[in-house]
């Protein structure tokens, strides 16, 4: 994937007027999340990590976002969303059941644990889950496609896109209080926003981003 905002780092604004104390505290805490499980047992943790790597394949050569740990903490706190499709059990139970069912499917298909499968095979299983083609007693009436959409994709992606590294990737401005934005029109950028690399002018964008 091309680096569209070379040199841009939301965190470089940490000590500017774009961040208030509340944002600093919240983001600091998020960056301090340790990459180990509190809620899941070892087996489920390995499965979850393998899933996260497929849902969000993180580029090499960059600090790794501990997505699985962020999902794990949501469950450890049982922090819910405020609604639940009636066909799904509460989130902790859904995750436990879904991960076990995926393991069972991997075993049945290839005789190995999900995290030991080749990535193509992992993707194939996940796609089957997404399309509702997985079933079996382990699912216990929980529709696989719903589990994929409402838990797997929902929780993993919400975790990743709450991390500053993902904001750098998409050129999002990140925290913005007390200072918001001034230049609102097309193709206008405040000096404290990410500069996008235009073909042939990558160096200029990097320069702007590193001197933010």
């Amino acid at each position: 994937m091309p680096d569209r905002y070379p040199g841009y780092d939301v965190l470089s604004k940490r000590n500017t007027a774009s961040w208030n104390d509340a944002s600093r505290q919240v983001i600091d805490a998020r960056l301090a999340i340790v990459d180990s499980p509190e809620f899941f047992d070892e087996r489920k943790w390995r499965t979850l990590r393998a899933i996260c790597d497929r849902i969000v394949p993180q580029p090499a050569g960059r600090a790794v976002v501990p997505i699985a740990a962020m999902v794990d903490r949501k469950l450890a706190d049982d922090h819910r969303d405020g609604y639940r499709d009636a066909r799904l059990p509460p989130q902790r139970e859904a995750w436990r059941r879904g991960l076990a069912a995926l393991e069972a499917a991997a075993q049945a298909r290839a005789g190995v644990a999900f995290h030991r499968l080749m990535t193509v095979a992992q993707d194939a299983l996940l796609r089957d889950m997404q399309c509702g083609r997985l079933d079996g007693p382990e699912w216990d009436d929980m529709p696989a496609d719903l589990f994929f959409r409402e838990r797997v994709a929902h929780d993993i992606l919400a975790a990743y896109y709450s991390h500053p590294v993902s904001w750098n990737e998409i050129g999002f401005g990140g925290p913005a209080s007390p200072r918001g934005y001034v230049r609102m029109y097309f193709n206008r950028r405040d000096p404290w926003e990410a500069a996008e690399a235009k073909a042939g002018h990558e160096a200029a964008a990097r320069d702007a981003n590193e001197n933010m």
Binding site: A17, S177, P178, R179, G180, V182, W192
Partner: peptide, 14 residues
């Protein structure tokens, strides 16, 4: 304005 003179880069403009 929000942030006062500390946020001058916004507030001098807006």
């Amino acid at each position: 304005e929000m942030g006062g003179w500390r946020n001058w880069r916004q507030n001098v403009l807006n």
